[in-house]
Design a protein around this nucleic acid. Structure first.
Length: 564
DNA sequence: GCCGTTTTCGGCCCGACTGTTTTCAGTCG
C-alpha cells in the first residue's frame, strides 16, 4: 500500500458521495483531504498520524486508519452497494452532474452509459422534468464522442492545436490581444481543452469570422461574453473556449481562467481575509472595483510577488518564497544536445552558433554512444575526432565555453558503453537508458546504480524514459533513484522536450535533488524547448541554486573540472 | 467533514451560460 492508494480511496469516496447527493461540502472535505496528503512531502511509512495533517479531521482519519489496517473501507463499501459503478462513468458526460445523474438513475433505473444512450434514443430522457429535447440530444452526442475522443491530450499535441488557432487569431484585425489561459498556460503535461482570453473590437464580427475557419467542427456555446467551439486538427478534436474581455478586465480574467482552481481558491481566501473580493472582473475593495494593467500588479496588490503560471497549482505557491525559484532568465547553458555526428540535424559549429544566439555562456555537445546503432552512435575513434573538432572551434567562439561530452548508453547488463579511459578524456558524461525497457525494476535499478556509481558519469538523462501519453517508460523506483543520485553526487535531468518532461514535476517537488534542465536538441529549433523544462522545474518549486545550468560561467567551469 | 480564537456553529470562491423555465437549478471553469 502506498500514499497513492489512500488518495485514490478518498477521491473515490468523494465521487460516490457526490452521486449519493451527499452535502457538497462534505464531498469537498474528502477531496481536500486527498489533496493535502498528495502535497505532504512524506511517504506513507513516514506518516504516523494523518489527523495531524491540516484538512484531515476525525472522520477522514477513521477511514484512513481502517483502510491501512484492514485494506478495505466500510464507508466505500456501503457507498458502492448503493451507487452503481456505471453512474460514476456518466460524470464524464458534459452537462451531466451528480444531480441530473441521480435523477436519471432514480426515475429511469439506468445504471450504465449504454442504457443511457438507448434511453436517449427512445426519448425517455426528454420526458423527465428538467430535461428537454436539447439536453437529450447533447447527452447522446457526448456519449458517442466519449467513446471515440481521448479525454486529455499530451502537451505536444496541445501545442499543435494552439498553433492552428493562433495562426487564425494573428490574422484577424478585430483581435487586439489574446492569451491562452487554463492548463495550457500552466504548462500541464496534458490538457483537456484550450481556453483563450481575448480582447476584440467587435465580438459579433469576431464570432462570425472565426466560425468560418476550416477547422471548426461544432459550436457549443455562443454569447456576448463567451464563445465555445469544437475544432478538428489532424483527425483529433478539442474544445476551445474564448472569453471576451475589456482592456480593464483583461488581467484579472486572465488570472482567473489560468487557475488552477486550488490557486484561485487560495487567492480568494487571501482577498477575503483583507475584506476584499476577487472575481474575473477585478478586485472589489472599499474604494470600488480595482483593475490592473498586468498580472504582476494584481499579485502586488495582495503583497505577493509575481507567481508564474506554471507554479499556480496547489496554493502552496502563495506561501513559499518564490523569488529564489528558477526562471528562464537564470538558464545560462544547455548541457544535452546532438549533432550530425549521431542523429542530430546540425553540425557542431551550427549548434554552437545557435547556443550563442540564445545568449548561453556554456554548452555541451553530447552525441549518442556506439551501441545506439539506430541513432548512429559514435565509435571511440569518432569520439576522439569530435573532441579534436571542438577543441579547434573554441578559439573561434570565445563568448561561449564549449565542453566535450557524450550521452552514453547504459547497456542492458548495467555495463557502460565506453571504457573509463575514454570517459576521462571527455569534459562531461551523461548516461541514459535507451534499450531493454521491458526489464524488471530490479534490473533497471541495477543499470541506473551502475551509472550513478561511475566516477565519470555526471548526470542521468530522461531518467524514466517516459513519453507523455505514449509510453510509460521503464520501471524505475524513483525514491531509490533519488537517494542513489544524492549519495553519489549524480545530477538528474529534467528533459525539456515536451514529449518527455522527464523527470516530471511531481517527483522533483520537495526532493532536495541537484537537477539540470536540458533540451536534448536534435535540431537548432529544439533549443527553444527550454521553457517547457523550466516550467516543470517551477511546478516542482525548484530553487535556482539546485539547477546546475544556472551556474555562472566560472562556477560551471569549476563544477566540470572538479569532477564528482 | 473540517476549521477556528472577535467563532464550537456556521461558514466553506464566484459568476456565466444553458436549458428549461416563467424566475431558476444545474453545471462548468
Amino acid at each position: 500500500m502506498t500514499k497513492k492508494d489512500i488518495i485514490v480511496l478518498l477521491e473515490t469516496i468523494a465521487t460516490y458521495m457526490e452521486l449519493s447527493l451527499e452535502n457538497p461540502f462534505k464531498v469537498s472535505a474528502y477531496r481536500k483531504a486527498a489533496a493535502a496528503i498528495e502535497t505532504d512531502g512524506r511517504s506513507l511509512a513516514e506518516i504516523e498520524d494523518f489527523s495531524a495533517i491540516k484538512g484531515i479531521g476525525k472522520g477522514v482519519n477513521e477511514v484512513i486508519v481502517e483502510y491501512r489496517n484492514a485494506g478495505r473501507s466500510t464507508v466505500l463499501d456501503d457507498l458502492k452497494s448503493s451507487v452503481p459503478e456505471g453512474l460514476v462513468r456518466m460524470l464524464k458526460i458534459p452537462t451531466l452532474g451528480p444531480k441530473k445523474i441521480a435523477k436519471i438513475h432514480k426515475e429511469l433505473g439506468i445504471t450504465s452509459m449504454e442504457e443511457l444512450k438507448e434511453a436517449c434514443e427512445n426519448k425517455e430522457v426528454s420526458a423527465l422534468s428538467g430535461f428537454g429535447a436539447k439536453t437529450e440530444e447533447n447527452i447522446s452526442k457526448a456519449i458517442d464522442e466519449l467513446l471515440t475522443r481521448p479525454e486529455r491530450y499530451p502537451i505536444e499535441r496541445i501545442i499543435s492545436f494552439r498553433t492552428a488557432v493562433e495562426d487564425v487569431l494573428d490574422d484577424m484585425e478585430t483581435v487586439r490581444k489574446y492569451d491562452v489561459a487554463g492548463s495550457g498556460r500552466r504548462f500541464k503535461e496534458t490538457s483537456r481543452d484550450l481556453d483563450y482570453i481575448i480582447e476584440v473590437t467587435d465580438v459579433a464580427e469576431f464570432t462570425e469570422k472565426f466560425l468560418e475557419s476550416p477547422f471548426i467542427k461544432d459550436t457549443v456555446a455562443q454569447g456576448e461574453k463567451k464563445l465555445s467551439v469544437t475544432i478538428e486538427n489532424d483527425m483529433d478534436e478539442i474544445n476551445v473556449d474564448f472569453r471576451f474581455v475589456t482592456a480593464d478586465e483583461y488581467f484579472t480574467t486572465l488570472h482567473h481562467f489560468t487557475g488552477s482552481k486550488d490557486h484561485n481558491v487560495k487567492m480568494r481566501q487571501i482577498a477575503k481575509s483583507r475584506g476584499e473580493k476577487i472575481s474575473e472582473y477585478g478586485v472589489e475593495t472599499d474604494g470600488g472595483l480595482k483593475t490592473f494593467d498586468s498580472e504582476a500588479a494584481f499579485f502586488d496588490h495582495f503583497g505577493l510577488p509575481y507567481i508564474p503560471p506554471a507554479m499556480r497549482e496547489t496554493g502552496e505557491e502563495t506561501e513559499v518564497d518564490v523569488s529564489g525559484i528558477v526562471s528562464m532568465d537564470d538558464i545560462r547553458g544547455d548541457l544535452h544536445m546532438h549533432t550530425v555526428y549521431s542523429d542530430g540535424a546540425f553540425s557542431v559549429r551550427e549548434m554552437i552558433e545557435a547556443c550563442i544566439a540564445k545568449g548561453y555562456e556554456y554548452m555541451i555537445i553530447t552525441d549518442h554512444s556506439k551501441s545506439l546503432r539506430v541513432a548512429n552512435g559514435l565509435y571511440e575513434n569518432r569520439v576522439y575526432r569530435q573532441i579534436e573538432e571542438i577543441k579547434g572551434l573554441r578559439d573561434e567562439y570565445p563568448e561561449i565555453d564549449i565542453y566535450t561530452g557524450t550521452e552514453m548508453d547504459i547497456l542492458k547488463d548495467g555495463t557502460l558503453d565506453y571504457p573509463d579511459d575514454l570517459l576521462a578524456e571527455l569534459d562531461y558524461v551523461i548516461a541514459a537508458i535507451h534499450s531493454s525497457f521491458s526489464q524488471t525494476e530490479d534490473e533497471i535499478m541495477h543499470r541506473l546504480r551502475s551509472a550513478c556509481e561511475n566516477p565519470h558519469v555526471r548526470h542521468i538523462a530522461h531518467p524514466t524514459g517516459r513519453l507523455i501519453g505514449r509510453r510509460a517508460g521503464y520501471p524505475v523506483n524513483v525514491p531509490e533513484l533519488i537517494s542513489m543520485a544524492k549519495d553519489t553526487g549524480t545530477v538528474l535531468e529534467v528533459n525539456a522536450n515536451p514529449r518527455r518532461l522527464d523527470l516530471s514535476s511531481d517527483v522533483i517537488r520537495h526532493s532536495g535533488l541537484k537537477l539540470t534542465v536540458n533540451t536534448d536538441a536534435h535540431h537548432t529549433a529544439h533549443l527553444e524547448f527550454m521553457n517547457y523544462g523550466v516550467a516543470a522545474l517551477q511546478k516542482g518549486l525548484i530553487q535556482k541554486e539546485d539547477v546546475i545550468n544556472t551556474f555562472s560561467r566560472d562556477a560551471f567551469r569549476k563544477f566540470v573540472n572538479k569532477g564528482k
